[in-house]
Write a protein that binds this DNA or RNA. Structure first.
Length: 575
RNA sequence: GCACCGGUGGUCUAGUGGUAUGACAAGGGCCUUCCAAGCCCUUAACACGGGUUCGAAUCCCGUCCGGUGCACCA
């Protein structure tokens, strides 16, 4: 695999050749926003296409598209309105920002100050005489302000209805869950995917494209019964590098390579379903050009888990920014559906029939109020309630002719007939179950960047250094380049003809007739075009063209009519 | 957000107060029978705003962007 490149060179190439552009650069730009140029868009689309092929096509996890602006209620229920914001204290002396809740936790016995109102946090900071960790000044006049990572907006005129730009695509799937469960005819498990943009108003994003304020996610929400697990056997032999909590907490702990099957067997990954998606992710990353030596799956430490996650494994790639998170496979349990059920009052459970109906005996009382009313007057209502309770809890009390209950310290005796006591059989055929959610969620921008870095290579051809982007053909921005050997003697027309033929066959091709042939090969090496088709004088004679391979620079001749097949075999066969 | 350093054509770069150097790239032409060859021509920059000065890429202030450290990062 290729050497680790200089970040400068990669970023420079990405900008110069049309992969990535800083957004609104002519107005000075704003950090955290990047545009995709033509090649970047093509690469990203190819990566998304391959992701869809994996989940939507091969697994049947159908895709939906939901709005990027969400009503306030959605994010109150999801916990983002509270949990996604931090109270920041700024030192009046040096201006440095700190998490106010962390300062409070460090200097008092309070164990969880997250979620305390900012006024209270400021009070505690002042009362405890907490010093600024940076300059030592006392923080008794520190301003404590809520900083929510969600972008806010207003829906409609005025300020009555608040909306948020979604901080993750997931909630769109959860709030549509009732309709989705009907679509899937109420049968678990099923998966729903979504690809789209999400927004986080990061405090101070740096690291170029690695931390964005507007970014793209591809997410799968896999809904299952608590006991359902996906069988890992299709990926049991996939080798993965794992970095579990235990190894991270051990000073000598290191990530280790194992197979998905062994990881489940050894209990390293507790959830078989999570392990399955780790395996699928590993396969997918390798197929789009992530270097397996620079890929690992790291388990979240307990204190870094999101408010909704009970366990989480992050796919991480090693880049010049260090190890960066490119996806998370989180066990969200029933957190989201439970919260939306609670806040909306809607039923979010899925009816699950038991394998066999459960029959049990139930004891009930249906007191005859026309008897109790005249006999006990105002106390009748309370007596009836007490009888119902007693029928459920102590059915044996109804075995005689009379039954006694106590209401407000007063004992009453009622004839068993008037109590309307009954034993009956109840058949329970199933129950509403809140599905458990396993969420593999991919950060597309970081993946695109990682693919570029991992593909970037420099080698030497005929004593000349060249830059070559060794991206897998299936995600390369172009399938092939088409060149006339020289721009005269009618070679251009032949080349144009071939270009057109390839386009009509659905191939992404680029024609280039400018400069010497060697220069054009280098240009396309640099942007990762896997094949070049060169029209030369023999083409006029015998109808063959030269194909030239990006990685090896090998050349071979094929008939004009076989170009399409030949390109397809390279692109689909991955070289 | 703080501190320090930096920002000159697409890219890299020279330039310590007098309107910007060079290379590569790009476009046009000539040439060219397979890996950045050559010749001619062309396009193209002082991050933005303000100040000092007769005059600012150069000095000062603010902003933006980048790097590094601190802080933040579900």
């Amino acid at each position: 695999m290729s050497e680790i490149p200089e970040r400068q060179e990669v970023v420079e190439l990405a900008k110069r050749r049309g992969y990535l552009y800083p957004s609104f650069e002519i107005y000075g730009g704003v950090s955290g926003f990047w545009d995709y140029g033509p090649l970047g868009t093509s690469l990203k689309n190819a990566i998304v296409g391959s992701w869809r092929d994996m989940y939507v096509v091969r697994h049947g996890y159908e895709e939906i598209e939901t709005t990027t602006i969400g009503k306030e209620d959605v994010y109150e229920a999801s916990g983002h309105a509270d949990g996604f914001s931090d109270a920041l204290a700024s030192c009046p002396e040096c201006g440095t920002f700190f998490r106010a809740d962390h300062l409070v936790e460090d200097h008092t016995d309070i164990e969880n100050a997250d979620g305390m109102p900012k006024e209270r946090l400021a009070e505690i900071l002042a009362d405890e005489g907490v010093p600024c960790p940076s300059c030592g000044a006392t923080l008794d006049n520190a301003r404590v302000e809520e900083f929510n990572l969600m972008f806010e907006t207003n829906i409609g005129p005025g300020t009555a209805r608040k909306g948020y730009l979604r901080p993750e695509t997931a909630q769109g799937i959860f709030v549509d869950f009732q309709r989705l469960k009907r679509y899937y005819r109420e049968s678990l498990p099923f998966g729903v995917t979504q690809v789209g943009r999400a927004y986080r108003n990061e405090i101070n994003p740096r690291q170029g494209i690695v931390r964005l304020r507007e970014f793209q996610q591809a997410e799968l929400e896999y809904f299952k019964r608590p006991d359902d697990e996906i069988d890992v056997s299709p990926v049991e032999d996939v080798e993965v590098r794992l970095y579990p909590v235990e190894e991270q907490e051990d000073d000598d702990g290191e990530p280790f390579v194992t197979t998905v099957g062994e990881a489940v067997e050894d209990g390293v990954i507790e959830s078989e379903t999570i392990a399955y998606f780790v395996g699928r992710s590993q396969e997918w990353y390798e197929s789009i050009g992530i270097d397996p030596d620079r890929l690992r799956f790291r388990q979240h430490l307990p204190d870094e888990r999101a408010h909704y996650a009970s366990d989480c494994w992050d796919g991480e790639t090693l880049t010049t920014f260090g190890w960066i998170e490119v996806n998370g496979i989180a066990d969200r349990a029933d957190y989201d559906l439970r919260k939306h059920a609670e806040y909306s009052g809607e039923e979010m459970g899925v009816w699950q029939e038991y394998d066999e109906a459960v029959v049990r005996e139930e004891t009930v009382a249906d007191p005859d109020m026309s008897v109790l009313g005249p006999e006990f007057g105002g106390a009748a209502g309370g007596i009836a309630d007490a009888l119902r309770e007693k029928a459920r809890d102590e059915p044996e009390a109804f075995e005689g002719d009379e039954v006694s209950v106590t209401v407000d310290g007063e004992a009453y005796t009622v004839s068993t007939d008037a109590a309307g006591f009954e034993r009956r059989e109840v058949r329970e055929t199933g129950e509403n179950v809140l599905p458990q959610v396993i969420e593999p969620s991919y950060g597309l921008d970081r993946i695109v960047y990682s693919v570029i870095e991992h593909s970037y290579d420099e080698d030497v051809i005929d004593d000349e250094e060249r830059t070559v982007l060794r991206v897998p053909p299936k995600v390369a921005p172009f399938d092939a380049a088409v060149f006339p050997l020289v721009s005269k003697d009618g070679l251009e027309e032949h080349a144009r003809e071939i270009e057109e033929k390839l386009r009509q066959a659905g191939m992404r091709v680029k024609y280039d007739g400018s400069g010497a042939i060697g220069r054009r090969y280098r240009r396309h090496d640099e942007i990762g075009t896997p094949l070049a088709v060169t029209v030369d004088y023999d083409t006029k004679e015998d109808g063959t063209v030269t194909l030239r391979d990006r990685d090896t620079t090998d050349q071979w001749r094929v008939e004009k009519d076989e170009i399409i097949e030949e390109i397809e075999s390279v692109v689909e066969g991955d070289g």
